[in-house]
């Protein structure tokens, strides 16, 4: 069996607590051949296996051109993620992947970018932002919008502040609930879309976050003149296999693991926001 069906060993090289219940694991692949062969694109995910507990899909956050350390950022929500939370540097886990189709970065070259995220949905797009910042000349104006429920849910604040200082870059932050020290918008991500400097060409738009937020953001973008075929979303469903066999990740006729997780809006239009799909 190959690395899509049989996990390989990986070592936790670094662990960073990002927020009360959010942490990042930097993984090193001990097998030199595998480490050399392993390649991914932003937006793809791995199946991470915790010994004797279970396997879950987690997006890859790191830059594809720095594959020595694979970075994943997890929120501890349940059985498996809470187990991962307890891991220390030097512990080992299993990895299968990478899986799925990533963000349409080649198509987005030369265009303005609009990157809209909600909560930990920023993780799969942070890898896009880092990718773009390192190849800044290849892209037009970049707008980054991140929304959180509570002001203390904002992770990577120094990164957002650094991106704010970049030329030709707009960073807009929103929190539904904010306290003193939050100098940005209080309210929804969609409120901020009116401030986006959209040119006549619109923007290559990538959205990741809770489904209702993605739907609202996508619809607002379309109203503001973004073309439907320029809108891309990253979807989540229960995943057992990631190889297109277990049937759990189906959304209508799509298998999110193999047909996604990043989809053009046009393929999801009739399926989004439908309870129970």
């Amino acid at each position: 069996m190959d690395r899509y069906r049989l996990p390989f060993d990986a070592e936790v090289a670094e662990r960073v607590q990002e927020a009360a219940d959010v942490f990042s694991l930097y993984l090193r692949i001990p097998d030199p051949d595998l480490a050399r062969d392993y390649a991914f694109v932003p937006g793809q995910f791995n199946m991470l296996y915790l010994h004797g507990v279970g396997e879950i899909p987690i997006s890859i956050v790191s830059d594809p051109e720095e594959p020595d350390l694979l970075m994943h950022t997890l929120r501890a929500v349940g059985r498996v993620t809470k187990g991962f939370e307890k891991l220390k540097v030097g512990d080992h886990i299993g990895v299968r992947g990478p899986f799925g189709h990533g963000w349409p970065l080649a198509q987005a070259e030369g265009r303005d970018l609009l990157l809209i995220t909600g909560g930990l949905g920023c993780a799969p797009l942070v890898s896009v932002i880092e990718y773009v910042m390192r190849r800044r000349e290849r892209f037009g104006h970049v707008t980054i919008i991140q929304g959180v429920k509570h002001h203390h849910d904002l992770i990577w604040r120094p990164r957002y502040e650094a991106w704010m200082r970049q030329p030709d870059t707009t960073v807009l932050l929103a929190a539904d609930v904010a306290a003193a020290g939050w100098s940005w918008h209080v309210g929804l991500v969609t409120d901020l879309l009116d401030q986006v400097p959209l040119g006549p060409q619109g923007a290559a738009t990538m959205i990741c976050g809770p489904e209702p937020m993605m739907l609202a953001a996508a619809q607002r973008c379309l109203q503001l003149g973004v073309r439907e075929e320029d809108v891309w979303l990253s979807m989540e469903r229960n995943m057992q296999c990631a190889t297109g066999h277990c049937g759990h990740c189906q959304l209508g006729p799509q298998f999110i693991c193999k047909d996604g997780p990043v989809f053009p809006y046009t393929r999801l239009r009739t399926l989004l926001g439908r309870r129970g799909l």
Binding site: H51, V53, E55, Q240, C241, G247, H248
Partner: peptide, 26 residues
């Protein structure tokens, strides 16, 4: 129908674990 789930079945001493799949249903 092809749906199935995967579960870890660890040995009592925790040193090894079997990854099992079994039929599941929507």
């Amino acid at each position: 129908c092809f749906c199935h789930r995967q579960d870890a079945a660890p040995s009592l001493d925790g040193a090894s674990s079997d990854q099992q799949r079994s039929w599941d249903s929507c």
